[in-house]
């Protein structure tokens, strides 16, 4: 469980605070998406989860451990796997399996156990065939999946994706999202996904909107995306499907208002046609 208690944060030399009084609880096994415009503070928030940044005021607790306590950091970071935006800047070593081993090596895991975890993690993200490959020759999507494997090898409970799909092409994005979704569904992984793409946020069971360092909306994707006007004013958007749904409803076509995906829309339209 992740708990933010009235967290404030200000970067050194900046006038405006980046986070202003964040209160947020993420229970185990949930899938939370965070959206917000560039500079809304969502990335800053994600870096608080594993103590890369420490609150200037307030507390962040991961499974009850305070990130401010130096002695807690290793066990917090073992529990929170963090995947960043640029696939090139998070792989440390040249060969895929050696990179995946980096985390457990730092944790002092026994070599035999590292081997097992590396194989297991690569298999979970569908990259076993690339264990001996050179990391820089993979596609962006493959690199990100290796990065996820690197996290899984630490056996975390929480996976944080900080705009991890932003630099990928559509195929890479699909592969990555599917991998994350499977980990959530099959292994009960808690997921916190920060994204610029409203279509991705639909996958989550809870959606939080940030603006100016504050949480301004919090609810299910259905709830949040029913407030299209407000989202637009915040520099955001609704998924294209939601816009079609709303246009049709507005024109008097009777459609349920929980529709978020293309298959739901097709399903609802079919009996009418």
């Amino acid at each position: 469980m992740i708990e933010f208690r009235n967290v404030h944060f200000q970067y050194e030399g900046e006038d405006a605070p980046a986070l202003q009084g964040i209160d947020l609880v993420v229970p185990d096994g949930s899938f939370l998406a965070i959206v917000g415009h560039n500079g809304s503070g969502k990335s800053t928030l994600s870096k608080h989860i594993n103590g890369l940044l420490l609150p200037t005021e307030g507390q962040v607790l991961v499974d009850g451990l305070d990130t401010k306590e130096e002695k807690n950091l290793l066990s917090i970071r073992q529990q929170v796997g963090m995947v960043f935006q640029n696939p090139d800047n998070q792989l440390v070593t040249t060969i895929v399996e050696e990179d995946v081993a980096f985390g457990p090596e730092n944790l002092g895991v026994a070599p035999k156990e590292i081997r097992r975890r590396v194989d297991d993690a690569l298999q979970k993200v569908g990259m076993s065939a690339y264990a001996g490959s050179a990391a820089h020759k993979l596609s962006g999507g493959q690199k990100q999946r290796v990065a996820i494997a690197g996290m899984l090898a630490m056996e975390p409970k929480i996976l944080v994706l900080d705009e991890a799909t932003a630099m990928l092409d559509s195929q890479g994005r699909q592969e990555l999202l599917q991998t994350v979704y499977d980990l959530h569904q099959r292994n009960g992984m808690t997921v916190v996904m920060i994204t610029q793409y409203m279509e991705e946020a639909v996958m989550a069971d809870r959606l939080v909107v940030m603006s100016g360092g504050k949480l301004v909306m919090d609810g299910t994707p259905v709830d949040v995306f029913s407030r299209g006007k407000e989202l637009c004013d915040l520099g955001l958007d609704v998924p294209e499907i939601v816009r079609i749904r709303d246009d049709l409803i507005e024109s008097g076509i009777c459609l349920p208002n929980f529709i978020l995906t293309d298959s739901q829309l097709a399903e609802a339209l079919c009996p009418l046609l």
Binding site: S170, Q171, Q174, P239, E240, I241, I244, D262, S263, L265, A266, L269, C270, L273
Partner: peptide, 20 residues
């Protein structure tokens, strides 16, 4: 080819699959 399609296009394709 694993290229994505515009949302409207995806919905149209799904409807077509359902025989519309």
């Amino acid at each position: 080819m694993n290229l994505s399609l515009p949302a409207a296009c995806r919905v149209a394709a799904l409807l077509r699959q359902k025989g519309v």
